[in-house]
Nucleic acid binder design. Structure first.
Length: 117
RNA sequence: UCGGUAGAUUGGGUGAUCGCUCCAUGCCAUAUGGGGAGGAAAGUCCGAGCUCCACUGGGCAGGGUGCUGGCUAACGGCCAGGCGGGGAAACCCGACGGAAAGUGCAACAGAAAACAAACUACCUCUAAAAAGAGGCAAAGGUGAAAUGGCGAGUUAAGAGCUCACCGCUUCAAUGGUGACAUUGAAGGCAUGGCAAACCCCACUCGGAGCAAGGCCAAAUAGGAGAACCAAGACAGCUCAGGUCGUUCUCGGGUUGGCUGCUAGAGGCUGCAAGUAAUUGUAGUCCCAGAUAAAUGAUCACUGUCUCCAUCCGGAGAUACAGAACUCGGCUUAUAUAUCUACCUUCAAC
RNA sequence: GGCUCGAUAGUUAAACGGAUAUAACAAGGGUCUUCUAAACCCUAGUUCGAGGUUCGAUUCCUCGUCGAGCUA
């Protein structure tokens, strides 16, 4: 995922947390805020310290990033995925299904659900 | 062999597709090539480099280390040795200076807990006995710890009171750079324990940390007037000295980027010096640089181990853990697998 | 990233190296009461974990675990 597509500033994070809508799943929490349709959507990932040690947390983040990369989403949103504690245990496949289901619940997927190549 | 001890290494591999990040080259919507976690990257327990602040003198505190010799940039690290303890042995462990400078502490028990004393006893005298006076500290019991140990002599009974051996202290000689060891002589029990209690002695330590520090951009009035060294700061406290300034009146704003940043007390191989830690020298290599955090995801084949199965094969597991300025150590966590050297109480051959 | 602290009943705290680890509140049981409250009595700690010093450790030292605070 390119640097421009990641949410990087603490100000942006707190902005989404306070003003964005949220959806919940068994594994994930999604916070999203509509900004502007002109540019692509940006993503942030949060894994709490109690989830596990650094290796586990990094692995969860990488899997989340990878599964979002393989999913087509609408433009113009800032989204933050917060991993819950169960997300450290499950496999990549389950995590990816969770990401897709929570995005469809939020109605942020494009109609064509095919993977990017 | 089993079992054990010490040290070292390893920390799965190959390929495909799709990505992330840094560097180089060319081109500027991108392409090609190359690099991309560890032995502990961890804990932040020590030490150093590097950067800024302080660096004028005096006084008083405070921290650290603690057998000896060496290594090192330095160390609380390492190597070698001494002493003490543990083990049958290989080997392992040790905050291992000072208690004859001073102060303090030792609950309960016990007669008595540190400087002298005497509860039950033992002996002598007065005496029928009880009791009293004196001698003594061998035996008893208490306790974590009890005034050298053991044997003999002496004695009213006993006792380093005397003697032999052992221990202790002092002195001398020899060996060793030294810690210390060995030998000899003398003393005649003085000098109990605790310093991870205060403390004394020797050596040593300025403070803060890459969010250090530097540059740029943005923003802004980086200012104006009055008074004073009274208070404050200059990084333990204090005195003197110096510097910054401080107080009152009027009046504000920022949290981005670049750099530091990776060629170093560097790695690997050989040779030489040294018991070793380590050092010297020759050749060769360039080996992460992110900043809400890169080093990944999926698939195939395969290595190792476990279980199931007559076989073909199948299922499961594959540790601890993620760089954040950089090194040298220490400590802690760690599935396995491999190699080298050594030991022999018991058991088997 | 760096620095500095702390951990004791369920909670908040106390403790001179020597008590059966103390107090308040909470919880449970009992006494009292027709019942409840109040009052009184009783119960419950691996002193965060592992080592060491010491005759003896909550206390002193070392290592670890967890939790706070400060620092731009």
């Amino acid at each position: 995922m390119k640097k421009e597509l990641r949410i990087r500033k603490p100000l942006d994070f707190s902005h989404v947390y306070t003003n964005g809508r949220s959806w919940v799943n068994g594994l994930l929490v999604l916070k999203a805020l509509h900004v502007d349709n002109s540019h692509e959507s940006r993503f942030g990932f949060t894994v709490a310290r109690r989830t596990g040690n650094t290796v586990v947390r990094n692995t969860v983040k990488r899997r989340l990033r990878e599964s979002v990369r393989h999913t087509l989403v609408k433009d113009g949103w800032d989204m933050i995925f917060v991993a819950r504690q169960k997300a450290a245990v499950v496999s990549y496949q389950e995590l990816r299904d969770a990401v897709q289901s929570i995005l469809s619940k939020a109605n942020l997927l494009t109609i064509d659900r095919q993977e990017k190549t």
